[in-house]
Design a protein around this nucleic acid. Structure first.
Lengths: 209, 209, 209, 209
DNA sequence: ATGTAACCGAGACGGTACGTCACGTCTTCAC
DNA sequence: GTGAAGACGTGACGTACCGTCTCGGTTACAT
């Protein structure tokens, strides 16, 4: 949770170790160990030392390739989400149904303990570190938002959304409350809740009959 | 960010120091120091030792009255919000206008650097500590939600909201996106944004004309 | 074996912790643990961490009171020699006999494994660190040399030494070879050797008959 | 300063690399780099990594040919002394004069900063490592002692020494104090001191007039 | 009004983890 | 198949804070 935690050593002539010599075995072991520990003890209690010990790896090997614990967690997270960021939403022609499907999937993710833990770890870093936040926005949040907007746009063109609907706002209305409820634990996350959100939001921005 | 951080030493016959003998000077100095440090270095880098040093207070004095760093921050936060939790929303008779007023105020709060820092610190703890989360929910979030619902209920009775509107969902639709945008820094927080949120949500749940 | 290892934080207003609050228990435990470890694994393999662990003491407690491993060993050494530095040599009136007694005692010390280990540790630091060397000279070597010279002076006045004998040289002739043989392991250290040294040196500087 | 540091990989069928293919360039570069670093930062702070880096040599090349840092220093030392170990002392017929010559030369060596540094490094290893000590004794100290004794024996036969003089003791009386004074920094090393040592020792073991 | 309990500041204590350094080994290329 | 380069597992370094535990010194309460 440093003030400014780069996820990589960024632009510029690339100081540091030669990535070609990097041990794939060590990389995998670290991510696996970190993931397990995140699930077992939670982000705050994960230590770099414990990750190294469980991975059977030298601490220096972690510090050689990741600038911080946050960066390791970032890699764990991206490994977990499997690079699905920005993948298009389903399009069956029925916007409401598709949105229900997607929001229910998000609910399920949040209810999965491992995802829950990792995502919280992630959000903890993100919220206290603008640099990290920007990196995550760029690679994860924005692509996902765009995917949402693409589906909504298709729906709008199909006449399932009011012509003037602000797609950014609609996306936020769908995901914001969900995320907020999860983060603050202000209520249960259920499929019914997902459905109700979709219904209510579409009532606002759907076409008037 | 401990696994379980009570905000006070809880129920039961109240073991511990005699609150009547508590030094008001020390209490103030601690809160002031904590607040300053939060603003200067961010929550994660604030240490109890630094708070004590800046406050000119013994470390034990902090541990005597607060069970954790989180609890100190909680007090800083409640001192900042001035105990406004649960205060009724304005009611001018114009629901949309009143909601705009309130959401604009929330936007302003989030844009205030000190509030921003402190609230983030706060949210960090909250999201990683279910016990803390419950305490905060009970004392801050739920009362605020109830205040929202009260105003919405009044509006519904005045015919400014559809009779079947789910007040919980409406509240979340209004505050969730705002909070999400602030937390994840996914976009600017402006009065215009607040207004658009109110307008869109009321479009969903307002009476059909 | 740092370039310059003070044994204390030296002259001047005395920065650092308050010695009145120092825990005697911890001090003893550290010296005991260090002494044991010196005997078991040798100076080079003693680590501050091991001392702390065996003493049941925090590492910081060692660093708080001793600037280096060398300083701890210095204290072990002075504890072992029991502050005998500078104590007068025996004076029975028979110079040769008294010198034999003293040199035999030195031989015995060098043959004691614990003293051997500790003294080597000591000498290692001393020889690589002029500051340490000066400190040791001042507190141990010079007082001992002076004690030797005092006894020799008394002998000279009693006519047992040539009137012009250089007491410094005589002292070095007596202790230098002994120390050298011990340090370099160039030969056995026995009472007979001690006796022969005394005899030979006194032959040089004794009165001519 | 390991417990037991061989200078070579010792007896047995000689496992390891083929010495015929050894790079003379690398060997020289390592010794030069080690020598420079010894002079610059002192033995304790010289690292194998630094030697390798300065020599432009892989670390493995050092470990391939030398078992330890001590062994490298040993080679530096023997390179410096130029294989003079065991060379006969000068014999002009005047024992006292010859001894003065030799002891003055030793004094000069000790006063040479590079020799001083290297010899200290050397002695550090030696004193903490019996195996190393024995190796050094065998190759350097004993040959030198023998050279001394040879010259003394010649002198004894020429009637410049008492017939019963113990040549070992006399050698130690001449070199021990010198070495001790250098090692412990207990006094200045000058030609006058060398001369006085010779004079005093010969007074003991010279022929009675 | 005074004795005393307890809060105060200070900070030493046993610990945990940090991020760095160097070790000696192992792996990969280029010559 | 040696030699450079350098990543690897290991382990100690010295530092920063943790939360607990004494220390006097100083209130302020209950006698």
């Amino acid at each position: 949770m440093a003030e400014s935690t780069p996820l990589e050593d960024s632009r510029a002539p690339r100081r540091g170790p030669d990535p070609r010599r990097r041990s794939e075995r060590a990389r995998r072991a670290v991510l696996r160990a970190a993931s397990e520990l995140l699930g077992e003890v939670g982000y705050a209690k994960v230590t770099v030392e414990a990750i190294a010990a469980r991975a059977g790896v030298g601490k220096q090997t972690i510090y050689r390739w990741w600038p911080s614990k946050a960066a390791v967690v970032f890699d764990v997270f991206t490994a977990l989400t499997g690079g699905t960021a920005g993948e298009p939403l389903p399009d069956t022609g029925d916007l409401a149904a598709d949105l229900r499907t997607v929001l229910r999937a998000i609910v399920d993710e949040f209810n999965d303990p491992e995802m829950d833990r990792t995502t919280r770890a992630f959000t903890t870093e993100l919220q206290n570190d603008p640099v990290f936040a920007e990196a995550v926005n760029e690679r994860l949040l924005r692509p996902n938002t765009e995917a949402f907007k693409d589906r909504l746009r298709a729906g709008r063109e199909a006449g399932q959304l009011a012509p003037g609907a602000d797609l950014d706002i609609v996306t936020e209305l769908l995901t914001g409350p969900l995320h907020h409820r999860w983060l603050m634990r202000t209520g249960p996350l259920t499929h019914a809740y997902a459905d109700e959100l979709v219904e209510t939001v579409l009532a606002a921005v759907g076409p008037r009959d």
